Computed example of a mutant assay.
Amino acid sequence: MTGTVSALELGYSFCPNDTFIFYALHAGRVPAPLPVREVLEDVQTLNEWAAAGRLPITKISYRAYFEVMDRYVALRSGGALGRGVGPLVVAREALGDLNGRRVASPGALTTAELLLRLVSPGVRPVRMRYDEVMPAVARGEVDAGLIIHESRFTYPQYGLMRLLDLGAWWEGETGLPLPLGAILVRRDLPQDVQRGLNAAVRASLEYAYAHPQEPMNYIRRHALEMSDDVMRAHIDLYVNGLSLDVGAEGERAVRELHRRAVEVGAAPPSNLPPFVDLA
């Protein structure tokens, strides 16, 4: 093949876990099977774009992945799964049953809202961008808020209290780590390219682990008004061994989340393999 190969657009969020993982790939510190170009957006926007098939490689909520499994397949590297990482429900004061309550949500296609639906199917979600949730709760515009990302470290600054840890609920129910976000590639990309991209993402994370200070300016540039301490806490929480490879336990967790989503009518069934075949 001759000529210049156009770069594949790689979508991921502004969050420190994503910018930490993808820094080396973005900066050309590790090889990739094809050139890639960063596209940074909030996760709900990436979820919506994936539904339209806009990007060939993209971060996505696992809940949203279940809607596009016919078009995309998840890499085994680069995702966010773990223990103690779940979304929280916060409010200004203690509440009883959440059913019937107006709860600010970061999006219909987020794993967070799926978990809330599993726990309290009668909630009334009020959807907004994730960084608008805590201010809306603090102003009394909603009864409670469903928070994700770095908000789990900062909600006390808004005078809010934790009502429910949805990750702890999931772990207690299943004994499995919680799947939050995946990195998808289009299924119509050649398998050698899919495998090469998986290897590139893993190498990018390994580079960040080996050179932890090098990505910090890149991370800081995209971290909104987050302090360095919160950035590091965010990375430590959401980037772990399951980010290097989802492993057998992580794959079981994803399949169980999908099974439960199908069971409550929140996602369509699929018999397609959820992860790239590295064999």
Results as ranks from 00 to 15, higher is better:
Arg187Gln: 03
Leu164Thr: 08
Leu189Ala: 01
Arg162Tyr: 01
Tyr218Pro: 04
Leu189Trp: 04
Leu180Ser: 07
Glu206Lys: 06
Ala200Cys: 08
Leu178Ala: 02
Val185Tyr: 05
Leu163Trp: 00
Gly181Met: 12
Asn217His: 10
Thr174Ile: 04
Ala223His: 12
Glu225Phe: 15
Arg186Asn: 08
Asp188Leu: 08
Arg195Ala: 14
Leu178Asn: 02
Asp192Met: 10
Glu173Thr: 07
Ala200Val: 03
Ala223Met: 12
Trp169Gln: 05
Arg195Tyr: 05
Ala210Gly: 13
Trp169Ile: 04
Tyr218Gln: 12
Pro215Lys: 12
Tyr155Pro: 12
Arg186Cys: 04
Pro156Trp: 12
Pro156Val: 05
Arg186Trp: 02
Leu197Val: 02
Ile183Cys: 07
Asn198Trp: 06
Arg162Pro: 00
Asp188His: 08
Ala199Val: 11
Gln157Arg: 13
Val201Glu: 11
Arg221Leu: 15
Leu163Asn: 01
Tyr158Leu: 10
Arg186Gly: 11
Met161Thr: 12
Met216Leu: 14
Val185His: 04
Ser204Thr: 05
Gly167Phe: 01
Trp170Glu: 06
Pro156Phe: 08
Glu206Ile: 06
Asn217Gly: 14
Leu178Tyr: 02
Leu197Gln: 03
Met226Ser: 12
Ala199Leu: 13
Gln191Ser: 13
Glu214His: 03
Gly167Pro: 04
Arg220Lys: 10
Gly175Pro: 08
Pro190Gly: 03
Tyr218Cys: 12
Leu189Lys: 08
Gln194Gly: 00
Asp192Ile: 14
Leu164Gln: 12
Tyr158Glu: 06
Gly175Leu: 10
Glu206Val: 14
His222Lys: 10
Gly181Ala: 15
Leu197Thr: 01
Ala200Gly: 04
Ala182Gly: 13
Ala203Ile: 10
Asn217Phe: 07
Arg195Phe: 13
Leu189Ser: 02
Leu163Pro: 06
Leu164Ser: 09
Ala210Lys: 08
Leu197His: 05
Gly172Arg: 06
Ala223Pro: 13
Leu166Pro: 00
Ala168Asp: 09
Arg220Asp: 07
His222Tyr: 15
Arg187Ile: 02
Ile183Tyr: 10
Glu171Ser: 02
Arg186Glu: 09
Val185Thr: 02
His222Leu: 10
Trp170Met: 10
Ala199Met: 12
Leu163Val: 07
Pro179His: 02
Tyr158Ile: 10
Met161Ser: 09
Leu160Phe: 03
Leu176Met: 07
Trp169Phe: 08
Glu173Cys: 10
Gln157Trp: 02
Leu160Asn: 14
Leu180Lys: 01
Leu163Phe: 00
Asn217Leu: 14
Ala210Tyr: 06
Leu178Ser: 01
Glu206Asn: 03
